[in-house]
Design a protein around this nucleic acid. Structure first.
Lengths: 217, 217
DNA sequence: GCTAGTTTTTAGACTTGCCTAAATATTTTA
DNA sequence: TAAAATATTTAGGCAAGTCTAAAAACTAGC
């Protein structure tokens, strides 16, 4: 159906489009794809001819309805494979991304529907991100960044914004995990750093950390 | 490490090399790869430069030690994924090949070693073919074709030579499966067709069938 | 509202893996 | 053992996806 490269561009546009209403710029896409702006222009033209994106020169690019559906199926596959790797093969949450980047391109409807069943229709991946169903529908959680909470507020950790291996390892080391209850004991006005309470201990974290953790109140 | 195409050529040479002592001919490889002889020559040159095959113009091609090890790892991955698809996702043995053709190229040592563990270190794939271990070692079964048996001999079905969907479906339909005991009740001199005894029933099969079934006596 | 700076696109080229057509080597056969 | 048939390689080209360098279009600052 679509080439590896086309699928990766669609996914990248999808992820960048989430962050704003505006179209995705050539440079942003080049950065995301680790390539040059000129290569991006070429590919966008191709995707545009295939009606997967809506594109006007110098105006940025948007996913078409077809493009969005395709991107959602790739995201679905990526996240299901991540669940498989963690739940069935014992990977930790910081190890799954690269492998899932490859697995997400395997083309078999049956493979994915059976995998979904085998995993018991999970709703979220190991980082708390929602898994679209076969039709591309998924729950949007009403979550907020931990950095938005004030002193005294508390909630449950439901996701991470940064899924880099470094950040996830930092969380592991400090026993901060999905589903944990976090209470803000104190917040420093000067730099936004926080003293937070976990079940067994309290911990001081920088805004770099608190602004990458999603909380449901 | 290696491109998709390189891996597929190595695997094809490996499978063709099994059938004879001689080098693999350009035409045989072209047939196996569903491509043209000239394309094969190009790729063989490339693999030869990378020391994965030993090649002399007009003399056929052989896998080098490195090439053989690489091919065995791809075969290992292919067969482990086939076991996964059948045992965990409920695929039937005639549905697994195409999907495994894609899955076998996923590059992650850990993925394969953990999959192997998860599947409890299977020794054979759903068609009875041996699965090489991480070092590339595998058991060579002492098996023979059912067509070689004489009237009165019996044995256990341990594998199939032809893994085409059509053949496997024929076997399913007639309840001929891995592990079944088969006895030759009668063999026709004229065309080699056989009357065989399965557990519950007897059945007449053509030499086309008996020469694609492996038996262990 | 013009100019300087930035972003984006175009032009031309490279690599991989494939193709067709033609040339060359090997094998078969008479 | 030489011509005919077959197998293999070479030569030249094409598409996808990338690159660099240069041109064109936008955007901001004065």
């Amino acid at each position: 159906m679509f080439s590896l490269s086309e699928e990766n561009y669609l996914k990248a546009i999808f992820h960048l489009q989430k962050n704003s209403e505006a179209g995705v710029s050539t440079n942003a896409l080049a950065e995301e794809m680790q390539t040059k702006a000129s290569s991006v222009t070429d590919m966008i033209k191709k995707l545009s001819e295939k009606k997967l994106v809506i594109y006007e020169k110098y105006r940025g690019v948007y996913l078409s309805e077809t493009g969005r559906k395709t991107a959602l199926q790739i995201v679905r596959k990526h996240r299901l494979w991540e669940v498989f790797l963690v739940e069935k093969l014992g990977f930790s949450w910081d190890e799954v991304h690269e492998v899932a980047e490859e697995l997400e391109h395997i083309k078999s409807e049956k493979l994915i529907s059976e995998l979904d069943k085998f995993l018991n229709y999970p709703k979220r991946d190991p980082h708390g991100d929602p898994i679209p169903d076969a039709k591309g529908h998924f729950q949007v959680a009403n979550k907020t960044l931990l950095s938005n909470l004030s002193k005294g507020e508390k909630g449950t950790l439901v996701g991470v914004k940064d899924s880099s291996s470094e950040f996830l390892k930092y969380l592991d080391k400090n026993a901060i995990a999905l589903g944990k209850t976090i209470e803000v004991l104190d917040k420093e006005d000067f730099d936004g750093s926080m003293l937070i309470q976990l079940k067994e201990k309290s911990l001081r974290i920088s805004p770099m950390v608190s602004s990458n953790i999603y909380i449901k109140i």
